Simulated scan of single mutants.
Amino acid sequence: MIQIFGMKNCNDTKKAIRFFKDRKINVQFINLKEKEISKGELKSITKTFDIEELLDREGKEFKKRNLEYYVFDTLELLMESPELFKTPILREKDRVSLGYQPEIWKEWIK
């Protein structure tokens, strides 16, 4: 089962869901505004991506909070404010992708 972590208003998350729906592949969508990433899920994601890579420094929320001028613990910040995650985050068994990556996903579903 492919898990998609994201937010309903994120265009890349919508495109990821549509990518699998168009191929008749069921996914589990986890809306980060409603349910946080568990410590276990985050641990498996950070085996592939460093915690710093998960922070969306280009996103509206990061800029709105002027976070570029602050020193913070990235893990703590992401757990408190999931809207700061770079999305979508996809997990399938031990594989993880970050952002809109259709070429990677095509390999997963071969």
Rank of each mutant, 00 (worst) to 15 (best):
residue 63 K to W: 07
residue 48 T to D: 06
residue 12 D to W: 12
residue 90 L to F: 03
residue 44 S to T: 14
residue 77 L to N: 02
residue 26 N to C: 00
residue 95 R to H: 09
residue 57 R to L: 10
residue 34 E to Q: 08
residue 50 D to C: 02
residue 18 R to Y: 06
residue 61 E to W: 05
residue 17 I to V: 09
residue 100 Y to E: 05
residue 90 L to Y: 00
residue 106 K to S: 13
residue 16 A to T: 04
residue 101 Q to C: 10
residue 65 R to W: 02
residue 41 E to L: 07
residue 96 V to D: 04
residue 86 K to V: 03
residue 12 D to L: 14
residue 51 I to G: 01
residue 1 M to L: 15
residue 39 K to S: 13
residue 32 L to T: 00
residue 8 K to E: 03
residue 72 F to G: 03
residue 64 K to C: 05
residue 44 S to V: 12
residue 63 K to H: 07
residue 94 D to V: 02
residue 62 F to C: 04
residue 81 S to D: 10
residue 9 N to Y: 09
residue 45 I to Y: 00
residue 94 D to I: 04
residue 95 R to C: 03
residue 22 D to T: 13
residue 5 F to V: 00
residue 55 L to E: 02
residue 85 F to R: 11
residue 55 L to W: 01
residue 6 G to R: 04
residue 57 R to N: 09
residue 81 S to Q: 15
residue 26 N to W: 04
residue 107 E to L: 14
residue 50 D to I: 01
residue 96 V to G: 08
residue 64 K to P: 07
residue 87 T to F: 06
residue 107 E to V: 12
residue 94 D to T: 05
residue 22 D to Y: 11
residue 4 I to F: 08
residue 103 E to N: 14
residue 19 F to Q: 05
residue 30 I to E: 11
residue 59 G to S: 08
residue 89 I to P: 01
residue 104 I to Y: 12
residue 53 E to K: 15
residue 28 Q to F: 09
residue 102 P to K: 15
residue 66 N to M: 10
residue 73 D to L: 12
residue 58 E to S: 15
residue 44 S to L: 14
residue 49 F to T: 04
residue 86 K to H: 08
residue 78 L to I: 03
residue 109 I to L: 00
residue 9 N to S: 09
residue 109 I to T: 02
residue 53 E to A: 15
residue 83 E to S: 14
residue 40 G to M: 10
residue 51 I to L: 02
residue 34 E to T: 05
residue 94 D to R: 06
residue 62 F to G: 01
residue 102 P to D: 09
residue 66 N to S: 12
residue 52 E to H: 07
